[in-house]
Design a protein around this nucleic acid. Structure first.
Lengths: 196, 196
DNA sequence: GTCTATATACCGATAGAC
DNA sequence: GTCTATCGGTATATAGAC
């Protein structure tokens, strides 16, 4: 991966984040060294500090960018009036979006404990904003008689845990395609909260 | 934490595993040093190697003991004929057992990637055996018309992900007690797979 | 913008005294 | 059974040459 010296500011910054994302997803934040990331990019370790003040900020930026993209995408969806249609779309969106970004999802899930308290709080706030989007769908469905839940907050977390679980085992070479998997999960989620 | 020299073989072994479990659950395997574990126990770093051949085996033993205890407990439950009763009991058991062992559960989920390939395969086999216990309940329920599922394997994983998710947010000081939470989840799980 | 070199500190694991 | 001391290696981050 060695390369000769030169100026590549425009491309090196993103490549640092891409390399960090790939390595951290595979080996974990604490186990990945700045030297490994630099080798993956093709620069020396010291050069990384032109693009991030330190290793912690590199991790924080990966997680923040992931959550901001997730929120921007879901909040840009046109509203749906029918609660069942909204929940069905949410389930399929969540699975599809997460299966398209396995590395970022894995990091967002596994590396929370390696954030400083301030950075953790910022990521947690974004995560709660996403959760609230699902809670709003469920709340509306209950109010309109389409859904029945023992507890709104529990149901919200249960559904997100169920849907995110797909990323732990799904492989593109497996027996089911991602649309088929998403359809199965959407069906189960709807049953979970359906009114009798 | 310093202490004077002496012989404490009977107590030091378990205390090493307890300290390792506490520290690894909080900071992650890669971020915890043998020196930190030794300090927590109250011995010097070199003394740890009387109780484990290396750091990797220490992690593997924690995960193996956790899975073996989980399997022994669930497989010792008396059989239930009604599929709905069996699933209800499984959901409550899973949540109760996991909430009682938050550190072991956290490690079992987060540190799989830090196992050597051989150790990973052994833990994965135990995990699949546990999953199969739930799959058997669902399969029986489908055969007897109590349950209806889009896919047996997906439903098994979806339910385990949903139930295990409780450990990520449950706090004993929160608004709901653990039995109340378990009851809500059991109700949702039953709805998820109920026949129409 | 990137390099080489380095400061300072910690790591896992082992050897040998007691 | 535990300690002290240490080996060989790696870590993050910085300084200064080009």
């Amino acid at each position: 991966m060695a390369r000769t010296a030169g100026s590549h500011a425009e491309t090196t910054g993103p490549r640092v984040r891409e390399a960090a994302q790939r390595l951290i997803a595979r080996h974990g934040y604490a186990a990945v060294s700045m030297r490994q990331i630099a080798a993956e990019v093709g620069v020396q370790a010291g050069a990384l500090y032109l693009y991030t003040p330190d290793k912690q900020t590199l991790l924080y930026d990966l997680m923040r960018l992931h959550m901001e993209e997730l929120l921007a995408t879901v909040e840009a969806l046109p509203p749906l009036d029918d609660p069942r249609a909204a929940l069905d779309r949410f389930a399929r969106f969540h699975i599809g979006h997460h299966l398209d970004r396995p590395e970022a999802v894995f990091i967002a899930y596994m590396e929370l404990r390696n954030l400083t308290p301030e950075n953790f709080a910022a990521i947690e706030a974004l995560r709660r904003r996403y959760e609230e989007g699902l809670a709003a769908i469920l709340r509306d469905g209950v109010a309109r008689g389409a859904f029945a839940l023992p507890d709104l907050r529990l149901a919200t977390r249960a559904i997100i845990a169920m849907l995110t679980g797909v990323t732990h085992w799904f492989r593109d070479m497996g027996p089911m395609g991602r649309d088929e998997v998403a359809a199965c999960y959407a069906e189960m989620v709807l049953k979970t909260v359906a009114a009798p």
